[in-house]
Design a protein around this nucleic acid. Structure first.
Lengths: 114, 114
DNA sequence: ACCCTAGTACGATAACCACCGTAGTACGAA
DNA sequence: TTCGTACTACGGTGGTTATCGTACTAGGGT
């Protein structure tokens, strides 16, 4: 029996359930903005994305878990387990479909100096 | 002596002091989003803009005051007194200069159905 | 079987926030 | 000067949140 990689699914809002309030609130936090900015550097496809621990934050890991969950529940990121790791990626397509240009504008704003 | 209209100034963040966190936080509230959406329908020039009471919100007036102040302190709107009225307008130019496309993306998202 | 790594769940704490009502100020009009 | 309108300041309340530490689970490697 080969070493299979267990995958557990997690609840996500459907793309039409994503609410602007929730997205803005999720993005209105420095830590979560760092997560989103970092995830933007990783892909969204199969086998892409970043694990939680790859994105280092100056907070306790339990706090980090909390921020990832807020982003997921707002519909900003997608999360699924692969083995012990949790893979995170931006839901760019869903966000772009729902709120065109919003994610890009925020990413650009977050990247701007000062 | 003619009937002059007294003008009192209020403190605003300079355009380079506008912080993304604060702007997103200010916009991440349904009432404030309504204010911003409504102000978008008014002009920004001299003698334009809307008074606080022109923008009706289903909250107490003291709560309304609070929301307008949050928007002003975040740099989203400009406020100044003219007589007993307080004129509000979007700081579109400042926001666009600092965070290009962000305001438009949010306004479009807020206007999108459901 | 054992352990290590990755992340979670829970409870606590302190800060913050939306909201209200009441009392008060600023200004212009009568 | 008296009044009405527009808005504010303050104090309080209940709900939410960011943070932590500790104890725990899941999965994979040895």
């Amino acid at each position: 029996m080969p070493t299979t990689t267990a995958v557990r699914e997690l609840p996500h809002p459907a793309h039409e359930e994503i609410r602007l309030d929730a997205v803005l609130h999720a993005l209105a936090d420095p830590m979560r903005l760092r997560i989103v900015t970092a995830l933007n550097g990783y892909g969204e496809g199969e086998g892409q994305g970043a694990t939680c621990s790859q994105i280092e934050l100056p907070v306790a890991t339990s706090t980090s878990t909390h921020h990832f969950r807020v982003l997921r529940e707002a519909g900003v990121i997608n999360q699924c387990y692969r083995g012990t790791a949790k893979i995170n990626c931006l839901r760019r397509a869903d966000l772009d479909a729902r709120f065109p240009d919003l994610l890009d504008a925020v990413l650009r704003a977050a990247a701007s100096p000062v």
